[in-house]
Design a binder for these strands. Structure first.
Lengths: 244, 244
DNA sequence: TCCGCCGTGTTAGCGCTGTTATCGTGGGAC
DNA sequence: GTCCCACGATAACAGCGCTAACACGGCGGA
């Protein structure tokens, strides 16, 4: 038999799979945990304390999931992967996610700082690779804010904001701007398209390859970027230009 | 003397200025509104109905405030103005804002559709001006999602996300990417810089002017844009190229 | 004038909630 | 043994959302 505290946490987590946190009664938790009513208060002080503990455990799962994402040599791509896993977690655990990111009252989960710290590290990897256009702290806050917004709207208004295209759009907008990577999903960035057409037009030849342009783009970036290893972009020249 | 319904709504709104919606008891509302306890249920069905009504009224104020923003000839700038007024409203009415944008249970305010419709119109103005790179619906959802995310994080975790630089950063990232306006605060967009330097390099002349490039950019945009009135951009040629 | 209707005020109460006090019990430490 | 402490069980508290029942008063129609 597990300890009372564990059973309470587990029971709350299970109920949180189907109900909003505030719609869960302490008695329902105690029934499911096979625990007397006062046990919650002995262990967590009050219901809010229990919910905060559950939120912190949720953050642990959340972060463990993120840590499982392997780091590649492209820190910007890692940023996108982290965004997507964030969204996936939110959609998979809607009530837990709301508990974690929209705390009630003044009992905020501490673990969000850890989440921010991890994101900050990922952003700093971008900066070290010369692929960040602003302060890492600001970049991290911007990315996380937008990421949470996409999730909250998808959860709160699924019929209006559940379109799966929204997340990639915002993701590429924020991460792209923050890092200077203009790439989006099906479309090359304006800069690349424009430049390629321009080059083709002015030289009277076919458009140049994406890789060469990519290097040129990097070379023309504003200062404050280290030399670092610039790998070839995965922007291929195949799908260039207006599709029609 | 006003009607009972009005007094209840007003009292709830006043209490909402200092307390979270769920922390407000129906009895406190009735006391303040000088109304018997059953009156709430006669007027609104239940507490949730009352809160939804209050949220809808909040949306009316929210939208009225947005409608007061005059339309300029630059629809993208109008988009930014709308973003800023959104954030200002959220910070000025934290509890009301949370009630509006993170509804509990399945009683969602209807007025959010109207908010989305207004935003959609603003986005369509950008499209008509040839300054939109994606479907207006997707653009509107992206902007509103990010906008709400910035507000929610600033409200929920002010010490971590209250930095006033976050909102402009996310705003310019999302709106800039969605519209193709790469302008940020102090820096010209990558596209413009790249193109201008390219043209200058390839033609062996000085960089071309911003206006000419701007027209060229528009002409090279993906399809689905009307001819419409293309005014001169406010990107001047004065501060072109890497500043160093 | 009388009637019925309707919006409103009043009282009492139901079942549920979070929370606490109280007591009992069982097992490990000294 | 005995002390202590984590845990279980019961009962109770005040407050909550919500409802039933009734009383009052103004107002249009018969």
């Amino acid at each position: 038999m597990s300890t009372a505290r564990e059973r309470i946490l587990e029971a709350t987590g299970e109920l949180l799979a189907t109900k909003d946190a505030l719609a869960i009664s302490t008695r329902a938790i105690c029934d499911r945990a096979k625990v007397g009513a006062p046990e919650i208060y002995r262990q967590f002080g009050d219901k809010q304390g229990l919910l905060t503990a559950v939120a912190d455990i949720g953050f642990e799962r959340f972060l463990a999931e993120k840590r499982r994402n392997p780091l590649t040599e492209d820190p910007v791509a890692d940023l996108r992967t982290a965004w997507d896993s964030h969204v996936a977690f939110a959609l998979r655990n809607p009530y837990l996610y709301r508990l974690m990111f929209t705390p009630t009252g003044d009992a905020k989960p501490q673990a969000i700082k850890e989440a921010q710290a991890i994101l900050l590290k990922a952003v700093e990897r971008c900066r070290d690779a010369g692929r960040l256009l602003m302060a890492p702290e600001l970049a991290g806050q911007s990315i996380l804010s937008a990421n949470v917004g996409v999730c909250m709207m998808a959860l709160s208004f699924p019929e209006l904001f559940g379109d799966p295209a929204v997340s990639p759009a915002v993701r590429d907008a924020v991460i792209g701007t923050v890092t200077g990577d203009e790439r989006e999903d099906d479309r090359l960035g304006t800069a690349t398209v424009l430049a390629q057409v321009l080059v083709g037009t002015l030289t009277g030849t076919a458009p140049v390859t994406g890789t060469a342009l990519d290097d040129l783009t990097r070379a023309l970036r504003p200062p404050a970027i280290g030399p670092s290893d610039i790998g070839p972009s995965d922007i291929g020249p195949s799908d260039i230009g207006p599709s029609d």
